[in-house]
Design a protein around this nucleic acid. Structure first.
Lengths: 126, 126
DNA sequence: GTACGTGCAAATGATTTGCGTTAAG
DNA sequence: CTTAACGCAAATCATTTGCACGTAC
């Protein structure tokens, strides 16, 4: 895999942002430094980076969002606005894997928990 | 919300199938009994049923799939073919909610774990 | 120098919308 | 009767593709 400016910019952006940006947001960011960049290039790069297991896609409320692949972690998702933040807990992951144990139809190698609720911005009671 | 043949067929299909069918699969099923049905109708119904919290959408490898909303549960997903099966564990859910505790930026009300691996069909080592 | 990446435009595929007609309550 | 749902075609939106040209290595 070659290291190009476009590719580097995308990856750096994802590493600096725990925001799980959408394709649109990534595209806007890259264009700021490399104005001739097109969405097709962004899509191609995201795909390549995913194939090489460097980034990961998460789908929130029908929108594709991306994160630089760091240690396994969980997500807290706002059911209203789609905001998503990371939550680390190896303990939870181990508990999940232990509780599921051996499955006759599946060989399981990872577990991730999604927490759903409302962020403070969307929570009317606050 | 009116009860129509199309709507009923979709809902019954989802209740009878733990397969998490895609829009295409649901459409094919409905057409068998009600041949004039179009995809637009299927989409409209899926949206309506979701708004009324009767069904739920899950996105697997970029494909929208649907399930009749039953008790909260977890998913086991094949990273290769996208096959998905349900896994019940109130214990896991409670553990997750307990471990996350109070969050300053979020009011959390549910937790669901996704397990990833390979199903027997896709697992070469079997 | 060669293969991979980029930029562009066109193609595809999924989902939505508008609107006249039909059917549920 | 009245309003929501249906069926159809057209529109929109996200994502992919093909290809000529550029650039990393």
């Amino acid at each position: 895999m070659k290291i190009t400016n476009q590719r580097n910019t995308i990856l750096k952006f994802l590493k600096d942002n725990q925001n799980h940006p959408s394709v649109e947001e990534i595209f806007e960011k890259v264009k700021r430094t490399l104005p001739r960049t097109t969405k097709a290039t962004v899509y191609k790069n995201l795909k390549t980076l995913m194939i090489h297991d460097i980034i990961k896609e998460v789908n929130i409320k029908g929108v594709s969002r991306f994160e630089a692949k760091i240690d396994p972690h969980h997500h807290i998702i706002c059911k209203n606005c789609g905001k998503i933040i990371d939550f680390e807990s190896e303990e939870l992951r181990n508990f999940a894997l232990q509780i599921i144990g051996k499955q006759k139809d599946f060989t399981i190698d990872s577990a991730e928990t999604n927490f759903f609720g409302k962020c403070n911005m969307c929570d009317d009671s606050k």
